[in-house]
């Protein structure tokens, strides 16, 4: 398998969002972060190679490119933003990766269901061994969107979910996840550097404390 350093260096070729959209919280996943996440998933847990992998909120395709390079047998990226998907397509082509891309709103994937033991179900038949994602953290206008992504992931993944969430919400997330049949653990604590991509950020960049979480499907 490719070495971590080499993976990260390959991933620096992935082009970032041309014009990030504020309402979608399109913070690009850095090559360093994507390489660390997917390399851990592939080597420590063996959840990538020969596996099917769904990327929720694929954006410009950083995690999916990493997954493809690490030998996933089948990659699907889902995103609400068609422009991001076009870019993800270009980035996958750059590595000659065969990822399928679907223009779908993750928030439309999850609906309440009284007859379900966890209280929700998916509107699609998507299933995969592994889900990887860097969901929106959720701001005032779309509070809780990170949990909708996690619900969608719980409905799709048969083995494991790899995700990034604000450290400040860790206990809440682990508890919720457990109620959906997911056993969560903190793989690493990170400082996520949000570049000043948006005009309303006064500072040059903002550091957010973020957990890299792995959820095992029970």
């Amino acid at each position: 398998m490719i070495k971590l350093k080499q993976l990260e260096s390959e991933l620096t070729q992935v082009t970032k969002f041309r014009e990030p959209k504020v309402q979608l919280e399109q913070y690009p996943t850095t090559a360093h972060l994507a390489a660390s996440m997917l390399y851990t998933a592939a080597t420590t847990y063996e959840d990538i190679e020969d596996a099917s992998v769904v990327d929720l909120g694929v954006g410009c395709g950083m995690l999916t490119c990493a997954s493809g390079i690490l030998g996933a047998a089948y990659n699907v990226g889902v995103d609400v933003d068609p422009e991001a998907l076009e870019q993800a397509r270009d980035n996958c082509d750059r590595f000659e990766l065969d990822a399928d891309l679907v223009n779908l709103d993750v928030q439309e994937l999850v609906v309440p269901a009284d007859d379900d033991e966890h209280g929700f179900r998916l509107t699609q038949r998507l299933s995969a061994d592994t889900v990887v994602m860097n969901p929106p953290f959720g701001t005032k206008s779309n509070k809780g969107i990170d949990m909708v992504f996690l619900q969608a992931a719980a409905g799709i993944a048969e083995r494991a979910i790899y995700s990034l969430h604000k450290t400040s919400t860790r206990d809440f997330i682990l508890r919720k996840a457990q109620s959906w049949g997911l056993k969560g653990e903190v793989v690493a604590e990170l400082r996520y550097n949000i570049e000043a991509s948006y005009k309303f950020h006064k500072k040059k960049s903002v550091d957010v404390e973020v957990d890299f979480l792995r959820f095992e499907v029970e």
Binding site: V80, L104, E108, Q124
Partner: peptide, 9 residues
């Protein structure tokens, strides 16, 4: 289009 199904409602 371009291989990408548009499932948006």
């Amino acid at each position: 289009s371009n291989g990408i199904p548009n499932m948006l409602l």
